[in-house]
């Protein structure tokens, strides 16, 4: 087919399209959907009894802040990478808060191994909390996956991974207000599995020609 003929064919299909808002606006939309969902589950689980005490601990606040910052940065990066022409460096945005979050988990593990802190991370997974955790992560993950799929799909697996990380980080921040022990490792492991399945199912890169 000649290029001129292809252009004529495409012009014949020039229907109006719903323009994708900028990543920052889509980030706000995601938070508007995800925050109430995690808040409802957190309140349904009940706030942890020692919350007031923990909120006075710098390490707890650092972990909470790093988790929230990871959620913001990863969500923004995942949404930005779906737009052609945006810098690849967006993928690096969540690295710093994620490193802080993981370092705080590592520090906690170390203290528990040395017996300098009460067993929390190393007590084994609270499997009975899994349904609550899954429900908490469900809506943010689904909302993010739908939003990522609206993008151009240039680096879809990476976009889904970042979106999944954002949902996990937000859920972890909410969980830390309700769950008696830190569930960060469990959340990351569970979400890692979910994202792997999503990436296998919907993660084909550069699905650029699909009409929307």
């Amino acid at each position: 087919m000649r290029t001129e003929d292809l252009i004529a064919r495409l012009v014949a299909q020039a229907a109006p399209v719903r323009v994708l808002p900028p990543p920052s606006a889509r980030l706000l939309l995601w938070f508007a959907l995800a925050l109430p969902a995690v808040a409802v589950v957190t309140l349904a689980m009940g706030l942890r009894q020692d919350l007031a005490l923990r909120l006075g601990e710098p390490v707890f606040l650092l972990r909470l802040g790093a988790s929230l910052a990871t959620a913001v940065a990863a969500a923004l990066a995942g949404l930005a990478l779906g737009v052609p022409g945006r810098r690849r460096a967006w993928a690096l945005a969540p690295l710093l808060p994620l490193a802080l979050w993981l370092l705080s988990l590592g520090r906690q593990c170390l203290l528990e191994i040395r017996g300098e802190a009460a067993a929390e991370l190393l007590t084994g997974p609270h499997l009975h909390c899994l349904p609550d955790i899954a429900v908490m992560m469900g809506l943010p993950t689904i909302a993010m996956a739908i939003m990522v799929l609206r993008g151009a799909g240039l680096r879809r697996r990476l976009e889904l991974a970042l979106g999944g990380l954002a949902a996990a980080a937000l859920s972890n921040a909410a969980l830390s207000l309700a769950h008696p022990v830190d569930a960060g490792l469990l959340v990351l492991l569970l979400q890692g599995g979910v994202v792997a399945v999503l990436a296998l199912g919907m993660g084909r890169d550069a699905s650029l020609t699909e009409s929307r």
Binding site: M1, T3, L6, I7, L10, Q13, V17, R18, V19, L20, P22, G82, V83, P84, R150, G151, A152, G153, L208, T209, E210, S211, R212
Partner: peptide
């Protein structure tokens, strides 16, 4: 070139006019 044109058509909603 034609694949790019098809792609432009498929993802024209992702272009931000700003």
């Amino acid at each position: 070139v034609q694949e790019v044109l098809l792609s432009v058509h498929g993802v024209r909603h992702t272009y931000d006019p700003a």
